[in-house]
Amino acid sequence: MRFYKISVFILCLLPISLLLYFFYIDELGANPFETLTRQSGEWSLRFLLLTLAMTPLKVILKQSWPLKFRRMLGVYTFFYASIHLLTYIWFDQFFDWPEIWLDIVKRPFITMGVLSWFILLPLAVTSTKAMKKRSGRYWKKLHQFVYLVGVLVLLHYFMLVKADYWWPVLYAVIFIVLMTFRFKAIQQGISHLFWFKIPLRQE
């Protein structure tokens, strides 16, 4: 398990490493700062969907190992979301706090984005084992707020697009499919549909 966890940990650092590398060699196009913002945003959404995909994977494979990656993927979601937020505060607004506040109040898509990050923050903070123990039965309730974040970031994406809704629609469809697995009846139905089991080879 340790081997798989370390591999996934390193794999998750690949997008940011490549972005920084291409930024360094000036291969992020004519507007590298915009590319950094867009890519970090897109990667945080992808990691959110990956995190949400672990439960369905458990149901389909009838194995519990996907759940072991859920926390790491969740923390990476927060990591990429934080980079995304930082690129906005830095490259878009240059730490002009009054202007940022105005943006949050006046622009709904900014509101959705910033709100999402502030919901993710306590989830990331309480992701350690000790915190999980301490918060007891509230922990699960708290972490279900990730579903709300999913809705908010999709709205965030839809509202910033000018005309081409292809990508946000695709991500929304994936999100909806992943959400349906949260219903018990559907879980059982799907469980019957897939007959195979894929265990992770133990070290």
């Binding site: 202007e99 105005l102 622009r107 898509f109």
Partner: peptide, 19 residues
């Protein structure tokens, strides 16, 4: 005059860092 979704007060000149 703002775009409904963003301010038009500043711009990034391609090739420059500060707006």
């Amino acid at each position: 005059v703002d775009h409904p979704r963003w301010s038009q007060r500043r711009e990034r000149r391609i090739g420059e860092f500060l707006k």
